[in-house]
Nucleic acid binder design. Structure first.
Length: 498
RNA sequence: CGGGCUGUAGCGCAGUGGCUAGCGCGCUUGGUUCGGGACCAAGAGAUCGGAGGUUCAAAUCCUCUCAGCCCGACCA
């Protein structure tokens, strides 16, 4: 018996860690809170990044790169921004053996350094819009970290755009949220709810923040991406004015938006099972693995057959790998490739050679089919296509099954449980029950009055927060706030979250 | 920053005062296996997180310290 994965039902947190470590996606680093992304994890990031980058270019954006060091004073130019980020800054005080005149912040996000340059680059309405994106690492000194979901340093992309009008900047904010939503659903098989954040949850320095929210298998919410309408806040902080078509001066309107390596955590937590990683085919480095099954006396013929199959898949443009290692048994390999999340396993043994066929097994459903070798590539494509579709459907079904409409506090209490299950309390038997509490509830959908107090009280009592105010559901929000009974203004999605 | 747990071979662990620190997995070599995590044999691999102390004797007891993980508050 080799690596073992803790079952989700036993300890969801431990299950997640086991998947990340055993599937060799990432590892801990010598520096607390940081992570090493291993080749198999990085391969997922590369594919994800490639597709997202394509979609950014398609919507008219260009990539650029800004330095990771930002003068401390830049952060201080926008009041809310500095307030929001200062607790988690990493600061460089020395360079070249000497104390720096002004400390440098390792970027937690790049609005400030980018807007300091936008000031130089924007004079006229003819210079607008600027639609820039950068792929970079950022550092936020988090107290509490978790592989992929929250690390002190993480990889992301941050789009920073500058516009002539408010409407244009708002349209950009909405457009990018939609790019994220479609990307999450089509490519990552991650059903998400797009909507606006409440004031207390919005980005430090934004006028409005929008997010896409996904539900993990423990029914907790994960913010999978954000798009911010920044108004003229950064333009004012960095004095970025342009001459309008009418000849007057006005501040530039802005948006910023980002997704990070956290998405990898979202994918794991949404699709994987107790056997290991389950990946959407779109993201898998290898779509198929061929496992030849041979004994010493038929190795040559089986390998020849397996290689032939390999060639056929390859010729059809499929990403295929062959596991010809003869020091491991087939059973070991099956388990290992399941752990790694390869979408389809192709078994080729003496029986298959004899019948000129192969056995194909889907990673997600375990569905097994035997097909003639020449039909195998077409069947593989079909299975991959179905898997991509069904992973999304399955996740959506799960989310819907765990979403409830709530009208009042009684509904909410019934849904989430009156008491928060205490974690880490040693039980009478002395055993640790760490992390075993099943998350109750899921997404609650209900009317909200818009009061910050209501929101804060709910958070304090149940650790439930407003994830967002879903787009397309904000009309006809008349009725009573499900928290306080006052007249409601919004429809909100409530959940416990990561 | 609070709470809990843990530092002994690459990994997971056992060893609660006694002289040569064990076990499983993994690794190396050779052989037999091979359709759901095979087996046999022979090997390699550790100054027991660190410092100080108690003792004839310390992985084990005491003091200090460092680190990591998980949980909580804060956050993409």
């Amino acid at each position: 018996m080799a690596e073992k994965i803790t079952a989700r039902s036993v300890d969801y947190s431990q299950w997640y860690i086991d998947i990340v470590l055993n599937a060799k996606l990432a590892d801990y680093s010598p520096v607390k809170g940081c992570m090493v992304i291993r080749p198999r994890g990085y391969a997922i990031w590369e594919r994800l990044r490639g597709e997202l980058d394509r979609r950014f270019k398609e919507t008219g954006h260009q990539n650029a790169y800004f330095p990771m060091f930002i003068p401390m004073s830049f952060l201080q130019k926008e009041a809310e921004h500095v307030e929001g980020f200062s607790p988690e800054l990493a600061v460089v005080t020395h360079g070249g053996g000497e104390k720096l005149e002004e400390p440098l912040v390792v970027r937690p996000t790049s609005e400030t350094i980018i807007w300091s340059k936008y000031r130089d680059w924007i004079q006229s309405w003819r210079d607008l819009p600027l639609l820039y994106n950068q792929w970079a690492n950022v550092v936020r000194w988090e107290k509490r970290t978790r592989l992929f979901l929250r690390t002190a340093e993480f990889l992301w992309q941050e789009g920073h755009t500058a516009h002539e009008t408010k409407a244009e900047a708002e349209a950009e904010t909405a457009q990018m949220l939609e790019v994220y939503r479609k990307f999450a659903e089509e490519y990552l098989c991650l059903p998400v709810i797009a909507g606006r954040k409440s004031d207390s949850e919005k980005f430090a320095g934004a006028v409005e923040t929008y997010s896409i929210e996904a539900m993990m298998q423990d029914k907790k919410a994960l913010q999978a991406g954000t798009s911010h309408f920044l108004g003229q806040n950064f333009a004012k902080a960095f004095d970025v004015q342009y001459q309008t078509r009418e000849g007057s001066l006005d501040y530039v309107w802005a948006s910023s938006w980002g997704v990070s390596t956290r998405l990898i955590g979202a994918i794991i937590m949404t699709h994987s099972d107790d056997k290991g990683l389950v990946l959407p085919p779109s993201l898998a480095q290898d779509e198929l693995v061929i496992v030849p099954i041979f004994k010493s006396d038929n190795k040559a013929s089986v390998m020849e057959y397996a290689n032939k199959a390999f060639g056929l898949f390859k010729a059809e443009g499929l990403r295929v790998v062959i596991d010809s290692d003869d020091s491991q048994s087939p059973g070991w390999k099956f388990a290992e490739w399941e752990m790694r999340g390869v979408p389809i396993r192709v078994e080729a043994g003496p029986k298959d050679v004899a019948s000129a066929s192969v056995v194909m097994v889907r990673r997600d459903s375990g569905e097994k089919v035997q097909v003639k070798l020449e039909e195998a590539p077409a069947m593989a494509k079909e299975l991959l296509k179905r898997m991509q579709k069904e992973l999304l459907e399955k996740a959506r079904t799960f989310r819907e099954a765990n979403t409830k409409d709530v009208r009042n506090m009684d509904d909410i209490l019934a849904f989430y449980g009156k008491e928060i299950v205490a974690k880490n309390q040693p039980a009478d038997d002395g055993e640790s029950h760490e992390g075993t509490s099943e998350a109750k509830g899921g997404f609650a959908r209900g009317l909200w009055c818009g009061s910050r107090d209501c929101e804060a009280r709910l958070k304090a009592e149940l650790k439930v927060t407003i994830r967002n105010l879903p787009s397309g559901m904000q009309d006809n929000c008349s009725g009573a706030c499900c928290l306080c009974g006052a007249s409601a203004k919004h429809m909100a999605i409530f959940a416990r979250s990561y």
